[in-house]
Design a protein around this nucleic acid. Structure first.
Lengths: 256, 256
DNA sequence: CAGTGGTCTAGACCACAGC
DNA sequence: CTGTGGTCTAGACCACTGG
């Protein structure tokens, strides 16, 4: 029961602590190359394995990234981009007039990387959302969204097939992805969402997510399940988004 | 640039993969003791260190927990408790009539463990929220909330001192914590919140959080900054909550 | 090519759990 | 007391980077 483990000691932890302090204090700027395994080995009079473990601890913390064959580098710390439901209703007048400081990088993630679309059978959860029988066909789109040039979010979206199959809306969604939010495309085709519910959870990434989102060490993902409904309450869109958790900030307001 | 690392091989990874499959497939029930380091060593003809690393990978994944001197055990997977802003306005009629299945464990976390209260000087962010000069005194409460007997959430709450200092409200908040949400206590004293904004972010826990919340491996925390405002728009409460991220699910609805 | 991180080995010592 | 996980050592091989 006494499972304490307050603060583990050990040579590897000590070496890591020294570097960790230097990084968080800013003495080692992002992008700087850390001492190599062999340098740490002689500096601290430890075995190679121990020095390697010390750097491994920093990588696991997300403070550093290892590039085999090159070195271990201080990881740049990205600012968190706020995401709020306002972005669903706000018209994208981003590039309006002034190129001033108020809008440096507050553009939501846009599609890039792979994209795909297909018709797939609905599993139980999805079928319930759309009030369809299990196994009924649904229209599915997948995308990898990027922000500031880096992968930011995996996206799987589902639609009712009768809304999309062979319609202009489907083509519009295909050719979009770079410019405007899917909600704007839906609205332009007479399917404006009237309400959105979002469920958020945080967890460790899978191996696939870790590589696709370029996550380091123990950085978590934020998994968001979003359901958009029309004025009649029927589901228009079901989206499952897996964000690189360290790059965003989710903001919600509620009147009591 | 080609930083792929699709799926790392290595003996330790292979051994871990076998156990991981057995766990996720349910062949190894939660609570089961995994093979010991020395058993794995002879079973797979590897060095002790390698077998130890294999178990370490499972612990890092949150699939297992190591109890030194005893063994390594399959970690119980907790259900996620949904949290939605509804809980702020819902009257706590939990123990009303039927003890049926609809309300088994959907009670929000309640205070337990340490609690504290003091007056502290406001730092810049807090001062801005309360429209006070930096360094002005604010009333601060800390608590460790538990759910189903396990630590669930660290809580730091701030209030304007004139609302609390030496009032019945302060005493009520002190003596509460077990029964009702702080908002109900505030409302009972004429300070009913009219709007709430919440900012959520996910990150790796600090060492202190990892021990206080009994987090295993790479399990992330969800950090929530909540600001409750009265009808005049002035901040009534500022709360910073750090949840054990794997045990909850945050739910929000929004009308467009 | 020399230097990098990643991994494995065989052996050792420690602190702790539980009988 | 035996078995447990945790850690360190000294040495080795590998695949890779980058001049």
């Amino acid at each position: 029961m006494p499972d304490a483990r307050i603060v583990p000691d050990g040579r590897a932890q000590q070496i890591a602590a020294g570097l960790r302090a230097a990084i968080t204090a800013g003495r080692l700027a992002p992008g700087t190359r850390l001492p190599s395994v062999r340098q740490l080995q002689v500096q601290h009079h430890v075995a190679r394995e121990t020095a390697s473990r010390a750097l491994g601890l920093l990588v696991a913390d997300g403070l550093a990234m290892a590039r085999p064959g090159s070195g271990t580098y201080v990881r740049p710390r990205a600012e968190r981009l706020p995401l709020s439901p306002d972005r669903y209703s706000r018209v994208s007048r981003q590039e309006a007039a002034s190129p001033g400081p108020p809008a440096p990088n507050d553009r939501p993630p846009r599609a890039a990387g792979f994209r795909g679309a297909r018709t797939a059978p609905a599993e139980t959860h999805l079928a319930a959302v759309f009030a369809l029988p299990v196994g009924a066909p649904v229209y599915e789109r997948t995308a990898l969204l990027t922000h500031q040039g880096a992968p930011a979010c995996l996206l799987i979206t589902h639609y009712r097939p009768e809304h999309l199959a062979g319609t202009a809306l489907a083509a519009a969604l295909e050719n979009n992805g770079e410019r405007e939010h899917a909600f704007e495309v839906l609205a332009a085709h007479g399917l404006a969402p009237a309400a959105v519910t979002e469920q958020l959870l945080t967890r460790s990434p899978t191996d696939a997510e870790r590589t696709l989102l370029q996550l380091a060490g123990a950085e978590p993902v934020m998994e968001v399940c979003r359901i958009a409904r029309g004025h009649n309450g029927h589901a228009l869109e079901h989206a499952r988004l897996v964000y690189a958790g360290h790059r965003f900030l989710w903001s919600y307001s509620h009147r009591l």
